[in-house]
Design a protein around this nucleic acid. Sequence first.
DNA 1: CTTAGGG
DNA 2: CCCTAAG
Length: 654
Amino acid sequence: METVVGIEDNDDGKFEDSGVDRSSSALSSPKQISNPIVYKLVRVEGDGRLVPATDDEVMEVGDFLEYENSEMHVVANTGQNLECISIERSSSGKLRLECSEGTADADLGKLNAKLQYIEQILQKVKEEEKQRISCGSPVHSLVNIDSQCSADKFPVMDGKVQSETPNQEIPSIASSLNYTHSNQSGSIDQCSRPSEGGIESGSSASAVYSNLKPDFFMSDGEICLDKLSIRELHELFKVTFGRETTVKDKQWLKRRIAMSLTNSCDVSATTFIIKDNKIVRKFEEESSGNMNTGSLISSENMTEEEDVNFKDLSAANACGLDDNQVVSETRPENGLEDENHQSEQRAAKRIRRPTKRYIEELSENESREHNPKLSISNKNMGLGHVSPTSYVRAARNVFSEVRTYGTRFDTLGGSDVQIPCVSRIRRSHPRKDIASLLKIHPTGMCKTAKLSNKLLDHSSDADSEIPDKALKSRMPAKLHQPPSSEPVKEKHCPAIGTIELQQESRPKRPEPPSHTSDDNIVTVPTAKGGMRRKHHRAWTLVEVIKLVEGVSRCGAGRWSEIKRLSFASYSYRTSVDLKDKWRNLLKASFALTPAPADEGINLRKHGTAPIPEKILLRVRELAEMNSQVPSNSGSSKLAAEAGRAHGGDTSGYL
DNA sequence: CTTAGGG
DNA sequence: CCCTAAG
């Protein structure tokens, strides 16, 4: 949480130096790609802070990533190391802090022991996998990943353990993360790291497992936990959480354990997998209960993409759950089980689904803490026990629009709870609750929001691979990508916007200035008393061009079509946005050309000539075409110009 | 849900 | 941009 705050601080840093950011991301991206963990693209600021990559960023890197993906297996090792390092660097400070804060030494010791144990298990598994791989199983890629992950994890997991683990490279940070994670979902860094690891391991492990014994996995998964006696569950709980529990509720224990295992970083996940698939399975069922997960797991021949998806899903679920749990748990540190229980339930509720608006708000605010208010959003959700399905559903609903690949990325990001990524959903309606949340902590909420996002994303992803996504095809992207949540861009990181701009503009030409980077988020007081945020995302030249192109192709008025065709990659920019922008363009184009001879002149007039005249001309042309009424009585001007435009160079453009 | 228009 | 009405 605290870490999150730090991110928030970034605001100042709008990354004007997007160039730098980009470069960094680009550099890391390939490697990242190789690593499942790395998936999340993160921009490292000068401070060393990690900023979640935006969709745009992801897109940019996307090519890279995709490319890499094909080959990544080989590279993976190197990539991971690098990534780890980078992460470490950036986040280490925070992480450590948390660590210190975190669990008691005793707990740590236990954890370490557990981790070691897990590690051993993992080793075995790896070996098995390798053998399998050598045999030529398709899983190969997965295996590699897994091994890598495990390696990372280990070091990370036990800072103490380091000596034992071969990888000393990995900083103690990881360990701190893990612990922290279990105790608190804390800083972004932590979250991202652990979650990633966890996800990765989990997915990989699961994948592997599936290869080995698909059937078993499928059928038994849950059962194992069920079979455990309460005492055993307690034992497991103890190991997992480093403390004993008096709770007798088997269900609760199972849930708890499963969740923690899944979530918890590498170690837990790994252990989990290795020891009992069941647990994992269980977790999945409970959390996601999705066919998707199951199917993915079950399929032996998973493609990389699928794997990725799977990972994402698991990660998302895990993360979400974890966070929730963590939060709930942490608070009630009193240790009363009852409290924990309650908190857990609450968490579950929370996860279920914040309103879009809510989410957005959260991301922006970055409220560092989960507010109790979150529960409000949850209100809607059914209480009782959380059914996995409900989660999914909620998520889906919320993100229906968002769910582009970007969303998926989010999922990854989701794994990192910390990263502020909220997928931005525009049309959500503001809610009072939200408003209150916002007011409360600008900083906080990130986690929650993220979590929710993750969940949502995942769920959505899981549910579907939505055609759109598929179309877009950014499957790979999804892998690499992180996080991105758009919301982040706008709100948290101005940088994102900048980046985006760069991306787009880069190809053609840098846009003027200001724009991009700033997301002006202005909160406007509503009569109701709620605050509504206006996020402003400057239109880049590229976007404008795309829009014009789309209009030319589909015709004005078919915004949804245009959106699908030309703005698939832009999760923000709704059809309404397109419409609005077009309206503005029309206005501009008319205004612009009042005088026929002045193309050059137009420019001169306003120092700011964001939109090239050619485009405006083109716009005018299109407008005319649309209207098909050159003879508009109303605007002679328009007509005249239009005519001129036609004759002129305009047509050539685009 | 998608459009269109107003604010 | 946001919001709302209308198809």
